[in-house]
Design a binder for these strands. Structure first.
Lengths: 145, 145
DNA sequence: CTATTATTGAAAATGTTTTTCAGTTAGCAT
DNA sequence: ATGCTAACTGAAAAACATTTTCAATAATAG
């Protein structure tokens, strides 16, 4: 089920700004924050107000259509969220973000944390940082000179 | 080694605002953001500028003396960071945050992510959300009525 | 096609963070 | 203990980011 169907089923309209914003995020390789989205779309000649960006992101995030991605520089950006449980890994050099799946591997850790803290775990935030293949290759090419 | 020694060894001074801010975070059970820290200290009769709060948090974070804690409501707060590898679990009801240790349990996941994405993992962001013992107890007490 | 109302964006308002710079203070040397 | 230095402070201003207000526009159901 694509995002447009999900949006309609949730009772929201498919407006032009919403389409443009989602399309931009779908074609972006790195997370984009509200002001960056606004600037880029303006540069592309698409006329929209910054408040629409904020509202759209807020709605899409609430509906689970997009995910927050925490960049190494402290900024928070957004990228489309695929169906099911997923997280992102972000390149510390070029900010390119790629999704990886699931949380099956964390069961032991969750158990330990629950035992250790006596909290009842219900959710988690997980993200990795590292170097993407391309930046690794650049680094290795530079390292050999 | 306590935070004061670490700060001195890094070449920074132990000013009154810095002491007050750290003390507040040390006695807080929930993460505090810059404006909350400023407000609370002002309410306690401690006169300091909001810019000192921002600068102090920035420095302490850079030195690893405090950690960012992502609250369920989307806000980011800070709490003292203990030595070594650690993360936080935050109560979704009362915001109380407790630290838990380490990342030994994540080795398998890291391996899988590296294989899956071909990224070279160097860091990660991990936080859990759930109910603290006290809120669990309150919920159970309410559930039985 | 029309009517309805969700959605938009400009402008204003509000909130947050950073810069500037003169005054204050932590801590080192004597 | 005292003096000195430069790190640090905070008020004010500036800059930046986000939200509110409200009339106009547009998506979509009938």
């Amino acid at each position: 089920m694509d995002w447009q169907t999900l949006l309609a089923k949730a009772g929201y309209r498919l407006s032009e700004p919403r389409k443009r914003i989602m399309k931009l995020m779908e074609t972006a390789e790195k997370p984009l924050n509200p002001l960056a989205i606004h600037r880029i779309l303006r540069e592309q000649g698409i006329h929209l107000g910054v408040v629409s960006v904020y509202r759209t992101l807020e709605l899409f995030f609430a509906l689970g259509l997009i995910s927050q991605v925490f960049q190494a520089d402290g900024l928070v950006g957004y990228l489309p969220a695929s169906f099911g449980h997923h997280h992102f890994i972000v390149c510390q050099k070029c900010q390119k973000a790629v999704e990886f799946s699931g949380s099956e591997d964390m069961r032991e850790l969750v158990q330990r944390v629950q035992t250790e803290t006596r909290y009842q775990v219900s959710d988690h935030l997980l993200q990795f940082y590292g170097l993407c293949p391309e930046c690794q290759a650049l680094l290795e090419a530079g390292g050999n000179s």
